[in-house]
Each structure stands twice: as structure tokens, then as C-alpha cells.
């Protein structure tokens, strides 16, 4: 009956542009701008959308969904302008809201099938898919229960199932682990990681939980007060610089002087000497799609090589200055370090 939405099926689309492009997007609900000059291009990947409360994360997601009126040419999803073709784009987007999003009075399977039909799926397909995706998210046994009897963790999984039922290209997840216990959080993150890593979905994960992003995302978008502070790979800082902890004995002042000539910074942390080395990595390349070689334990082989090279540089300085290190260890740079550095740098400006 409604042929405009018949092309929901990904095999029928014949579409090549899977990017999300935002170009100089500014948006205000009332007078105060919530987004200011935000620009980025996202390839299909797992992307963490980070920022403090009120930084514009949810507004940005809503702009991507076409819920907000934005001027033509500002937001383009899958090659289509959201100002003009939001409805057809939404057939290929899956949205998981932070709060609510569960219509009470329906069973889990009925709700998911209903959402599938609203996305333009044939009735029988929607019901079949509802069973499949509920099985996938781990709600197979509870699918006939009324939604209002679901626990918070089950509700989150149900919302993920409603986002997945029409097999979208991109998933927009707003705080998917909000209110979950550690076990439930791990289960949701496993699902999200699997969808992004193995099932070919683009995922935008909006959260203020850095550990969630670190667990599943490869890129981050950092927003603060409506401005985009950074768009980089999660490991960009690891690729760009390394921090080593050094402890030893010998002519320490000579060692420190020699190190300062080699390193970005040399600081004292109690008995430890913290040496920050510039690795010359290029974060922009990583965002553009470079994945690097990865070993079985999930750590990049390039990263191991960089660590070894850094250690050799420090040992060479120690040898030159007759300093005898008894401890040399690389201190991991967490996403939290990166995030707070970005926020602090922005604040100090």
C-alpha cells in the first residue's frame, strides 16, 4: 500500500553512501544555541558521543533522526538530506531512547513487531523479525510478558530490539546502559560491540560513561556546550604519545636533563619519573579508517612496536647518562585521561 517505504530492505537499496555528514550545524530550541557550528563526517563504525550533561548529545542524535528542523544541507545521512528526506532515512535508522521508549500494555514481541510495521515492514515479516531479534538480545523467554513487568535491564534490551527489528544501517543509542546493574551493562555492551564489530552496523553511542565507549567504540565525538571539541579515534592519544614510569638509581639530574631533550614532558610523581614521549602517530588517519594490525588479545601490534621503541629511547638515554633503571613501565592512557584533557584544555581557553 505504501511503496515509499518498501525499500527498507537493505538488499534492495543499492545505496553506496553509508556516511553521516554534518556540516556547520547550529541549532537552538528557544534562544540559547544547543549546537554551535558542529561539523563531522562519520563512516560506518562504532562511535562514542561524549560530553558532559547538557552538552548537546541528545539534540545531535535528534538532528540525525530528523526530529529537529535544520536547514537543508546541514545534516546528510546515507547520502540523503535530512531536511528533505528524513522519513525515508528513518526507515534505515534504529533509535534507542534514553528514557521511556516502551509502550505499556503490549507484550515484548507485540511491541517489537508493531515498531517493525511502523518502519514499513510487512506484517508477517515484522512478527517473524520480532521473534528473531528478541532471541538475539536475550529476551526469547520473556517475549510474551507485558512490557511493564520487565526489569530495567530487560527494558533496555527490548528497546535495542525495537531499534533492530527493521534491520537499519545505523543505530543511534542514547545512554543504553543507563540504570543497569554491572551484569546488565556488560550484556548490553556485548550486544552493541557485536552489532558494530561483526554485524556491519554503524553505531553512535551517546553516553557520559567513558568506560562504555572505551569498551565498544573505535571513534569518539566529544561535545561541550554544543561545540564539537574532538573527533578522533579512541586510541588516538595512545598512538600519539606514550607515558612511561621510570624508577632507578644513578645520576638522576643528568638523566632528567637528557630526557628533557628527548621527551615531550618529564615530571615527577613521587619516586617515579613520568616521561611522555611523542610517537608521531596521526589520529586523523585512524579516524579515516585505518584499523592497524591487531593481535589475538585485541591489542594492536603497532602499539606493541611503539611501546618497544619508546622503551628503547629511554634506555638509550639512561645508558648515555649512566642511570640504572630498575623499573620501566608504560602507563596506559585511558579514555578518561583524553576526555578530561580535552575538556580542561577547552575550559582554560
Amino acid at each position: 500500500m505504501d511503496s515509499s517505504r518498501d525499500n527498507v530492505n537493505r538488499t534492495d537499496q543499492g545505496q553506496t553512501d553509508t556516511r553521516i555528514v554534518v556540516d556547520d550545524l547550529t541549532f537552538a530550541y528557544l534562544r540559547d544555541p544547543v549546537l554551535q557550528g558542529v561539523s563531522f563526517t562519520l563512516q560506518k563504525n562504532a562511535i562514542g558521543l561524549l560530553g558532559p550533561n547538557g552538552s548537546g548529545k541528545t539534540t545531535l542524535l535528534r538532528a540525525l533522526l530528523g526530529h529537529l528542523r535544520v536547514p537543508p544541507g546541514k545534516v546528510s545521512v546515507l547520502g540523503l538530506d535530512m531536511a528533505r528526506e528524513a522519513r525515508s532515512v528513518r526507515a534505515r535508522l534504529g533509535w534507542m531512547p534514553e528514557r521511556g521508549g516502551v509502550i505499556e500494555g503490549m507484550s515484548g514481541v507485540a511491541l517489537v513487531a508493531y515498531m517493525g510495521e511502523l518502519a514499513g515492514m510487512p506484517t508477517r515479516d515484522a512478527m517473524q523479525r520480532a521473534h528473531e531479534v528478541l532471541h538475539y538480545v536475550g529476551l526469547a523467554d520473556e517475549r510474551y510478558r507485558p512490557c511493564q513487568t520487565y526489569s530495567q535491564g530487560m527494558r533496555q534490551r527490548l528497546k535495542l530490539a525495537t531499534a533492530l527489528v527493521h534491520d537499519p544501517q545505523w543505530l543511534l543509542l542514547d545512554e543504553p546502559t543507563s540504570g543497569l546493574d554491572p551484569k546488565g551493562r556488560v550484556a548490553i555492551l556485548e550486544l552493541v560491540g557485536d552489532l558494530a564489530g561483526h554485524k556491519g552496523f554503524g553505531v553512535i553511542l551517546s553516553t557520559h560513561l567513558l568506560a562504555d565507549v572505551e569498551a565498544v567504540c573505535r571513534e569518539i565525538l566529544v561535545l561541550r556546550e554544543g561545540k564539537l571539541l574532538a573527533h578522533q579515534s579512541v586510541t588516538a592519544d595512545t598512538a600519539r604519545r606514550q607515558v612511561f614510569e621510570v624508577e632507578g638509581f644513578g645520576p638522576e639530574e643528568a638523566f632528567l636533563t637528557a630526557l628533557r631533550a628527548e621527551a615531550v614532558s618529564v615530571e615527577r610523581d613521587g619516586r617515579l619519573i613520568l616521561v611522555t614521549l611523542d610517537c608521531g602517530g596521526d589520529s586523523d588517519d585512524e579516524v579515516a579508517g585505518g584499523e592497524g594490525r591487531t593481535s589475538e588479545d585485541g591489542v594492536g601490534q603497532d602499539d606493541h612496536l611503539r611501546t618497544a621503541a619508546g622503551a628503547r629511547r629511554i634506555l638509550a638515554v639512561a645508558q648515555r647518562t649512566d642511570y640504572a633503571p630498575r623499573r620501566l613501565r608504560r602507563r596506559p592512557i585511558s579514555l578518561a585521561d583524553t576526555f578530561y584533557e580535552l575538556i580542561d584544555t577547552n575550559e582554560s581557553r
Binding site: G120, P122, H166, D194
Partner: peptide, 19 residues
């Protein structure tokens, strides 16, 4: 892990859709 239960992409059966 729950995801090992598998996920398959949807192939439309070409059935009737409703507005």
C-alpha cells in the same frame, strides 16, 4: 554471550505493507 545466539539481516518476503 548473548550475541553468539546469532543475528541475521532481514530479507523482505515482499509481503504487503500498510501505511
Amino acid at each position: 554471550p548473548v550475541y553468539e545466539r546469532g543475528y541475521t539481516h532481514w530479507e523482505s518476503t515482499g509481503g504487503r505493507t500498510y501505511p
